[in-house]
Amino acid sequence: MACNPVRDRSDKNHSDGNMSKQTIVEYATRLGDDALILGHRLSEWCSNGPFLEEDIATINTSLDYIGRARMFLSYAAELEGAGRTEDDLAYTRDCRDFKNLLINELPRGDFAFTTVRQFLVDAFNLFFFEALVGSTDTQLAAIAAKSVKESRYHLRRSRDWMLRLGDGTEESHRRTQTALDDLWGYTDELFHMDPLESELLDTGVAVDRAAVRLRWEPLVTELIDAATLQLPQPYTLPGGGRQGVHTEHLGHLLAELQFVQRAYPGLQW
């Protein structure tokens, strides 16, 4: 790949023992939470899609995201070595322990909102995972290699829908533009590097989100134009997902996601 934002510093890999192990656990949890929460949002379309084929397509995309969440969270649990499993992480942590970015937890809205969010996030994921493939952490790299292929498919579909809705009827255009305006302020958080990720970037484990932005912006700008939509005026909403500070929506989402395990702890079927 020509543009690889992951720095090649394999010599420093895992050199600081436990400290760096803990930061990788946190990093894998973040990526797992992003996938789990958005995967859950997409699953809410099951039986609510605009028509049968798109209902199925949305649910299949959801399944890819949840599969990705399972890989990241089971890796985090294994690396943590505290006897927890992916299920423990998904079903028994509370709001403040979830580290997903806020864009992923917003309610699914109408089909235009879901489409615009998927487009923005799919495009981000494609470039992010292309870079993570070069991670010095071999398990993260392996998960990324699987995810990148799927993200390519996801983006192909969400891009198509952006064009169809943006350049469709007056109503679809209006709804899509509204969704884009409402979501735009949440995109900044996708590219924020905090000290933990900067530290992991130095050891070649993490992805440089600023470099991902350089690839994301032109693609998104061009597609917005092709879909006859207007690029929103830049504005940034407060982030906080990585610190566990969420919108009021996450609690409601978790209430549904975790209900069975909260009501019947350890239940299996």
């Binding site: 798109e54 299949n60 799927e150």
Partner: peptide, 13 residues
């Protein structure tokens, strides 16, 4: 092509 996703994630319709 009818849809990028068919009866399972690995298939298109």
């Amino acid at each position: 092509l009818i849809s990028e996703f068919g009866s399972t994630a690995c298939k298109a319709l």
